[in-house]
Design a protein around this nucleic acid. Sequence first.
RNA 1: GCGAGAGUGGCGGAAUUGGCAGACGCGCUAGACUUAGGAUCUAGUACCAAUUUGGUGUGGGGGUUCGAGUCCCCCCUCUCGCACCA
Length: 843
Amino acid sequence: MLNPFYFNNFQIYFKIKMQEKMKYPFKEIEEKWRKYWEEKEVYKTNLTDAKNKLYTLVMFIYPSGAKLHIGHWYNYGPTDSWARYKKLRGYNIFEPMGYDAFGLPAENYAIKTGIHPYDSTMKNIEDIRKQLKRMGCMYDWNAEMMTCVPEYYKWNQWLFLQMYKKGLAYRKNAPVNWCPSCQTVLANEQVQTDGTCERCGTTVVHKHLTQWFLKITDYADELLEGLDKIDWPERTKAMQRNWIGKSVGTEINFKVDSTDYSFTVFTTRPDTLFGVTYVVLAPEHELVQKITKEEQKEEVEKYIEKVRTLSEIERTSTVKEKTGVFTGAYAVNPINNEKVPIWIADYVLSTYGTGAVMAVPGHDERDFEFAKKFNLPIRKVILQEGTAPEDELTEAFTGKGTMINSGKFSGLPSDEGKEKITDFIEQKGFGGRKVNYRLRDWLISRQRYWGTPIPIVYCDNCGEVPVPEDQLPVELPYDVDFKPHGSSPLARNENFVNTTCPKCGGPAKRDADTMDTFVDSSWYYLRYMNSRYSEGMFDAELANKWTPVDMYVGGAEHATMHLLYARFVHKFLRDIGLVNSDEPFAKLVHQGTITNQGAKMSKSKGNVVNPDDFTEQYGSDVFRMYLMFMGPYELGGDWSDKGIVGVDRFVQRIYSLFTNNRNLLKKVTPKEKYEIEKLNEAEKSVYRKTNAALKKYQNEIENFGFNTAVAALMELLNEITKNLSELSDGIKAYTLLRFNVMLAPLAPHLGEECWQLLGNEVSLFEKPVWFDADESALRVDTVTIAVQVNGKVRASINIPVDAGKETVKEIAFQSKNVQKFTEGKTIVKEIFVKNRIYNVVVK
RNA sequence: GCGAGAGUGGCGGAAUUGGCAGACGCGCUAGACUUAGGAUCUAGUACCAAUUUGGUGUGGGGGUUCGAGUCCCCCCUCUCGCACCA
């Protein structure tokens, strides 16, 4: 019976069994607390009380077929931890979550599988909601909302109509980016640098369509100035500044020789006006057809045709050699009546400035290159300091200098010349000062099904007629052939398209396009406060209490699109009296990108890491804490699960520490503060460490320094376990309580469990508790400072805190090593920084 | 090309105002737990020599300073953004 082999195995079995019992049972515990929070509605925000309000927002989720990935966890987990910390500190937190539910992927998926975008989106939302709940964030599920329902998108239409009324929504036929794969138009902002479609990677081509634009350019200046007032990452603000691209310059009219035609150029360098040796029009410029001479017609036509096939990126590539064609016509330089040839070239864009450029090859790199290639004259009109007028230009000189060969303006510094020449041009009526922006109006028309219908009808009698507000929403029909045929899917739905004119009652057709989904996301943060509100776009009273958003966290890739559009819409809503603030997001933080093997995670690359694998093995707290511990939040980094066991061990140690001290608070009530001199050495050191950790933790969490906050907690745990046997129950309870409140934001389930284990009756997040550091404990009586001889550390000495130089010097020179390095030498200099360093310089 | 950020042990990364570089974690090494260990605990772990100790070290080169990972100049590499913007 007592076979040693059996016995042996039984022992092992027993030991393993015991360990399993000890191990932190994260599955039950995490589920237990999630259920508790949900049943007690712990995260339901009292929105009527905005006294201590803190609106914490993450960019809402796009419910694609893919489940939550590491990036979502990395975005939402730490942000929630920050908000939880703030909650423990007494803030009234509002942390909502919703779904950015319209969009192309759902439609592409439908095209591929035949599953209706509405059905797949709703299914995805179901799945994602479950996953989100398992993360254990403080989302107020009462506020949950999605953009693809009429209750929401009705207000996109309403917003559009308000802009229309103010003349901010207009239609124009313009060269647009056409993605042959998506069969749709893309905004310039949505075309990638290599000329491909942001969503599908297909090379974008040009197509001319009549489209709706929102006049964001009217707000260009304010969007620029507003950046100074918001707490956003500098790099993001710089990106928006560049994107808006304000440049102050001069517009100058050039007459076309022996005709009545004229055109305008924009320049930031009017001081080089005498250096103009030719002018260039964009191939699309309206004048090109009118002025081209008969003998040049064929060549010009051929060139225009060639340019039409090029994407903007190809046209503007620096690598590409300059191309262009002479029109045969001449323009007259208004400053000196000189006749200069008119060329067309693809490097001049019709979408920027006036679509016409005065070419100064001597002082502009592109013009220089062009002139060299086509043998056009190069004239020097700005003299570089330290060079002679007769020196030949080997490259364009684009800096400041002294004007030469410029008539009566010769001799002026170029800065002054800019003003003088502009004054002259204004006086003569040839043009004037002009501010130009790189920013273009926001193209919102999409020839697509899965979006907000544009509330406009076209009537043969009345023309373009806005749908009256009381007839909103213009509902998106369910039955539709969403397969792309080059036109909008809605255009083929007779029931939708055919309608009556709201003005004359005659037959009319609806606009068959839908809106860019960035319209949806440009105001969603205003609706969360009352997501079922039906009296208006949003509950303005609540929205004004709670906005601007106090903390907005999301990817840096939205720097120039979503984040600019939302600012624009917010300012517009302010102007029509709906909101009372200037900016939507007071503070912005970008989470870094988590890559895998150096590449962005994507389905196509097959390098997607599934967070579920880790949450199932370690639990959601461990996974969340590991993501925070990996490195600086804003940097992101390459994914590796190498260190996750470290965080798991940390959690195991915490759990056994708290289980071993179960109901400690029933035995003892710790004091608010202890007199440090009355504690034993172990207690002193734990007491100090506890308060140092509190201080450090606060600093770090406030600034999204999660990695160092976790490290501070680990240090504290090490200090506690090292000294555990020497601690009185009072000190033990004191430090565990503080450890617990710091732990809870980072690992909320475990935090609650420990809180209960200690003997607390009410959930921590139900009744928030925080402890401030006892500053007196941080004051120490002795400090260790370095003693340097000639800048090299030769000793470390303990000195009384705040000890003066003479005392320190005395102690320092007791060190043999210091003596050794100073022996026989004279002291030239002494540097003493209190409590930091003593450095003696000898010779 | 322009703009922003980064470069620190075998690895992820720490380091208020310039003031003891390498916190915390992973990994590794050794030991303990009467036999097993993908468990736990303890100790060690930048590099080079050696016992104490000395020297070298934050991408490379120069500079400021008593003192530089940190500030200044030049260069290299990587990441992101922009790209003929007139």
